[in-house]
């Protein structure tokens, strides 16, 4: 900010402040990484560096652990050795001792979360680009009402709508089946992302000179073609950013997932499954932290890819956060 050189003392103060701020921001992440790599006996050790590197938590979550030795009591073993018993019965007996309670189906939850987030991102970005183009460029009845309405809607938090949306889904009958529940959840994620996507894209489309479309239309393109061939390709970076933004909103969502998916364990998303895992069992810090790291990773990668445009896109609209 200032042209003049800093004195040494000023430099020391500046760097101390910067380092403290950065540490404050990254310390929890270091803590998570460190604990995910520590053996349970090492948890009480305040140092961030594990005494021994312990990768079991990651291995278990990623399904790389060798199957556990089945511990069968002698009496049951005698039964199993009995040749008169059918193979089917033996398997049933064995299953009793190899219950899957202990295994946290991380891969499945990851896939569930990824699927719904991905679909939400694609559909929301597509619908929003159509609507944002119309609001930014075309003239039609009730246009400014819609533009302002979108802004209003985007500030009404999900908490205020959870009861009516749940009751609507019950009344229509969607809440009674797994597929209907997932559809409800997908629609809810759409409305949570559409307004902000429309807002970000609308602002971006306005920065593209109108003369480009005009020239295309002079050359015989229709309005729709001009949008498709000129505006969309020019907006690729912003479309990608908006997609990432929508993806991450869905990836993080807990409230509605907990309301709708409670009884459908197979379809739960990561936030819900992790919270359930955490509250239902004790002393599993390593697994919880490893799961946190793995949940974090895709988001960090996404944001590194989108960061350049995102910072601008976020500040332009004073986006949700």
């Amino acid at each position: 900010m200032m042209m003049n050189k800093r004195t040494p003392i000023q430099s020391v103060i500046l760097y101390t402040l910067v380092i403290s701020l950065v540490l404050f921001c990254v310390f929890p992440f270091l803590q998570i990484l460190s604990t995910s790599l520590k053996h349970p006996i090492d948890w009480g050790n305040p140092s961030l560096i594990p005494r021994v590197l312990h990768l079991d938590a990651y291995k278990e979550l990623l399904g790389l652990m060798p199957a556990k030795e089945i511990d069968v009591p002698a009496s049951v073993q005698r039964l199993l050795d009995n040749p008169a018993l059918s193979a089917e019965k033996k398997q049933m007996l064995l299953d009793k001792f190899t219950s899957n309670d202990e295994v946290f189906a991380f891969g499945r939850y990851m896939l569930n979360t990824f699927t719904i987030s991905f679909v939400t991102g694609i559909v929301s970005t597509f619908l929003a680009s159509l609507a944002a183009y119309a609001i930014a460029r075309l003239r039609f009845p009730a246009q400014s009402l819609m533009a302002n309405g979108v802004l209003f809607v985007y500030m009404v938090g999900g908490v205020l709508l959870m009861v009516p949306l749940y009751q609507m889904s019950v009344t229509v009958g969607l809440a009674s089946s797994a597929s209907g529940t997932i559809l409800s959840l997908f629609l809810i994620y759409l409305i949570q992302t559409l307004p902000v996507a429309m807002y970000m894209l609308g602002n971006y489309f306005r920065t593209i000179p109108f003369s480009l479309e005009e020239a295309a239309m002079m050359d015989g393109c229709s309005r729709v073609e001009a949008f498709w061939r000129i505006i969309l390709p020019l907006s690729k970076p912003m479309l990608f950013t908006v997609f990432i933004y929508c993806f991450v909103i869905a990836w993080n969502e807990y409230l509605f997932a907990s309301v709708f998916l409670k009884q459908y364990q197979d379809f739960q998303t990561l936030p819900l499954a992790l919270q359930t895992l955490f509250t239902s069992k004790n002393a599993i810090w390593d697994r919880i932290m490893a799961a946190s790291m793995l949940t974090l990773l895709p988001v960090i990668i996404c944001f590194m890819l989108a960061n350049k445009h995102l910072s601008g896109g976020l500040t332009d609209g004073g986006v949700k956060g």
């Binding site: 604990t35 991450v248 946190s292 949940t295």
Partner: peptide
């Protein structure tokens, strides 16, 4: 940027 769920346990 980090998801809430992946930092609360930390």
């Amino acid at each position: 940027f980090a998801p809430v769920i992946s930092v609360v346990f930390g």
